[in-house]
Design a protein around this nucleic acid. Structure first.
Length: 623
RNA sequence: CGGGGUGUAGCUUAGCCUGGUAGAGCGCCUGGUUUGGGACCAGGAGGUCGCAGGUUCGAAUCCUGUCGCCCCGACCA
């Protein structure tokens, strides 16, 4: 009589039930030092997707038992998910170390004073969680107020300032791999945008600007190696520096339909930039003003307060001949932005104007300054009542394409015609403020720009001296002179990368893990675990795979084969070995790659050597 | 924060419009039959219908408030 198979479940060994035979203690247990038995591990897979998951990677994270949600943007990394995360973390650590960065660990509870002293408190405070030990928001010497760290510039800079004072100790690059906290306005898509997430953050300190560029390029190269080893194709694109500030920056994007960023690029020329930063060669550098057709002239436009209304009869002014005048408030003072009527403002580009905070002005703020409501605004010298009340008039380069255009008269119901840029507009300075459009000429080659969505998984910034100034991080050079350290900062979203990998590498049945970040590389599916010879063979094959560098999970559950195969596809380990009673009678096991279709039968006698060889090859391929 | 949606068993959900004993599938427990792609039979446990008020003889259902979650926008690794 064959004993009824027991259900593999955690606690089985500690909870024998009468009439249910226990498996004998593991023979050859020494071989199982690293190998995991599924029945004694914990992989809670789900047949159905949770209702709150929208995108494939989020559904798969939950279905494959990698994560569980605690609340919005808060996730527990389950044992299998944690292993994948650890793989990614380790690769990151290796690449950072080999690029010369030094690992440390900083507190995540930050005294708020440090942030108040830093350069971005006003802009960053909204996204920061506050931890107040008294609970009443009042700060006393006994009850300091803390914030939870969203990144660590404000911590590392004072540290380096006190610890490093000589050029002899520079350059240095410190990094940590740790939890970050951001009170995201809208957490989304599982780990993609979470309130608490795992990030690698690095900070470089150099004596000179050229040194800072070298550090930056070293990080860029390290990032490229990291993403290649993880098995994801992330591309470096030019990016806006945002709230971090700094002089230039690249984002690493994983192309994916569900990403929240637009990457503007041209395949052939290699140009690639985040939409916020992207520019085009629309305006020739040597463009001359067109000849004014006559004096500026006011005309009545009752009720016409939109670009479209002026395009229509009876006015018939094409949008690309209209000046669009927008009013913003920067650090408390209004300023104007002028664009072509047919163009859209790319708000992030206003960051280059140097305001700490800016926002669109309200109609109530506009009327007293300009004398008219939105829809009739303009920036001609003649119509600006109080130029001194403005922080500036900033014009997009593209308006130089307009000759004899139309703009608001700063008088409700009236516009001006025959307006010419140099002759008539009170422009403080020109800049790139417009949002590029697909098809416009790429700034590198003039070929048409394309667009695709991407997930931002890494970001590198050359910061300059923005933080070292605030914290007075200086060093002494060999001439006994003091100088500010030149900084860079670098981040990789580790937990986000894990999800990006899944988003990029899955099929209808489940995840298809790349070799290097798979939680285990090899799954040994034992269809008849009650047969001692089957388990014995599983252990031998597992040992062969481990000895050549793979991590091994043995599915020894007393489940039906269908269940095991479905779970195997779902959790997506790269190499599956199947050991079944039928195969054993024929003297074969089966070998199948998750990414492929072929099932290869391998004679038992050759199986260990074959598995070792396959593992060796796969590891070499993955780098 | 603005707009839209949603909350019923561990998971996926029906019921709500038109008020009257809270239903199913998956999962779980017991017994049996099965055993190479999410088995079958029989039996069973599990829900104060997010929370608080209100209307009503009676509320999962109608009303008010509140909280959570999801989606669209601004922010970010």
């Amino acid at each position: 009589m064959r004993p009824r198979p027991t259900r593999g479940s955690p606690g089985e060994w500690g909870r024998p039930s009468p009439g249910k035979p226990l498996r004998p203690p593991e023979a050859g247990a020494s071989l199982l030092r690293f190998m995991k038995l599924w029945s004694q591990f914990f992989v809670p897979t789900l047949k159905e997707s949770p209702a709150d998951a929208e995108i494939a990677s989020h559904k798969l994270l939950v279905r494959a038992g990698l994560v569980r949600k605690l609340g919005g943007g808060l996730y527990t990394y389950m044992p299998l998910g944690l292993r994948a995360l650890q793989k990614i973390t380790q690769i990151c650590r290796e690449e950072m170390d080999s690029a010369g960065a030094i690992e440390l660990w900083m507190p995540h509870l930050h005294p708020v004073e440090l942030w108040e002293q830093g350069p971005r408190w006003a802009a960053a405070r909204e996204i920061m969680f506050r931890a107040d030990s008294a609970g009443d928001g009042k700060r006393t010497s006994k009850d300091p107020e803390f914030v939870l760290g969203p990144t660590h510039e404000e911590i590392i800079t004072p540290l380096v300032k006190t610890e490093i004072t000589s050029y002899r100790d520079l350059p240095k690059n410190f990094y940590q791999i740790a939890t970050k906290f951001r009170n995201e306005i809208r957490p989304r898509y599982g780990l993609m945008r979470a309130r608490e997430f795992i990030m690698m953050d690095a900070y470089s300190f150099d004596t000179t600007d050229e040194g800072a560029v070298r550090s930056y390029l070293a990080m860029k190269a390290a990032y490229e190696k990291f993403f290649r080893r993880v098995g994801t194709q992330a591309i470096a694109v030019e990016a806006d520096t945002g709230v971090m500030g700094g002089s230039f920056s690249h984002e690493f994007m994983v192309p994916a339909e569900v990403g929240d960023d637009d990457v503007i690029y041209n395949e052939a020329s290699g140009y690639a930039a985040n939409r916020e930063k992207a520019t085009s060669a629309l305006v020739p550098a040597d463009l001359a003003d067109s000849a004014p057709a006559g004096a500026v002239e006011e005309f009545a436009t009752p009720g016409a307060v939109t670009i479209a209304a002026l395009e229509a009869a009876p006015f018939n002014v094409p949008a690309d001949r209209q000046f669009k005048t927008l009013v913003y408030v920067g650090d408390g003072k209004p300023f104007l932005v002028i664009l072509r009527g047919c163009d859209e403002l790319e708000e992030a580009k206003l960051g280059s104007l140097g305001f700490t905070l800016f926002r669109p002005a309200t109609p109530e703020e506009i009327v007293p300054v300009l004398g008219a409501k939105p829809g009739s605004l303009g920036a001609t010298r003649g119509s600006l009542k109080e130029p001194g009340a403005l922080a500036g008039v900033f014009a997009d380069h593209a308006i130089r394409l307009i000759g004899n255009g139309v703009t608001g008269a700063n008088k409700d119901g009236f516009h001006l015609r025959n307006v010419n840029v140099s002759r008539d507009l009170a422009i403080t300075r020109f800049g790139d403020f417009r949002r590029v459009r697909v098809g416009e000429p790429d700034p590198k080659s003039g070929q048409p720009l394309q667009v695709r969505r991407g997930i931002e998984v890494g970001h590198i910034f050359k910061l300059g001296t923005k933080y070292s100034e605030k914290f007075n991080a200086v060093y002494t050079d060999d001439q006994k002179q003091s100088h500010l350290m030149v900084m860079g900062c670098y981040g990789i979203g580790i937990s986000r990368t894990m999800q990006a990998v899944i988003e990029q590498s899955h099929d209808a049945d489940g995840i298809v893990w790349p070799w290097n970040c798979a939680p285990f590389q090899v799954l040994i599916c034992v269809l008849d675990p009650q047969l001692p010879e089957a388990m014995e063979l599983a252990r031998r094959l597992g040992a062969a795979a481990e000895s050549t560098g793979a991590d091994v999970l043995i599915d020894d559950r007393a489940e039906r084969p269908g269940v095991k195969f479905k779970d195997a596809d779902l959790i997506g380990l790269p190499l599956r070995l199947t050991i079944g009673g039928k195969g054993l009678k024929e003297g074969v096991i089966e070998l199948k790659w998750r990414a492929g279709k072929d099932v290869v039968k391998v004679p038992v006698a050759e199986a260990e050597a074959r598995v070792a060889a396959e593992v060796r090859e796969a590891a070499a391929r993955a780098g």
